[in-house]
């Protein structure tokens, strides 16, 4: 059991987390944050195994992982 959380106000839509997640848990959503970026969203939470790869590559520390 693991959970990934995107802190949308920090997200800048760079897609690095989307590309790195081996399980396809993250996608870019259709809602913008206050800065106008379409932020990453969790689309398949069940599949997250808490590997933290998304957090490691995130340049804006916009991801938290719980296990």
């Amino acid at each position: 059991m693991a959970r990934v959380k995107v802190l949308s106000e920090y997200c800048k839509s760079c897609r690095l987390c989307v590309e790195i997640c081996p399980k396809g848990v993250l996608q870019i959503g259709d809602k913008t944050n206050a800065k106008g970026y379409y932020t990453a969203i969790v689309v398949d939470e069940e599949k997250c195994n808490g590997c933290t790869l998304c957090g490691i590559v995130c340049p804006d520390v916009a991801i938290e992982v719980y296990k």
Partner: peptide, 8 residues
């Protein structure tokens, strides 16, 4: 659940 990754 414990936080395993986040802002240092």
């Amino acid at each position: 659940m414990q936080k395993v990754f986040g802002r240092p």
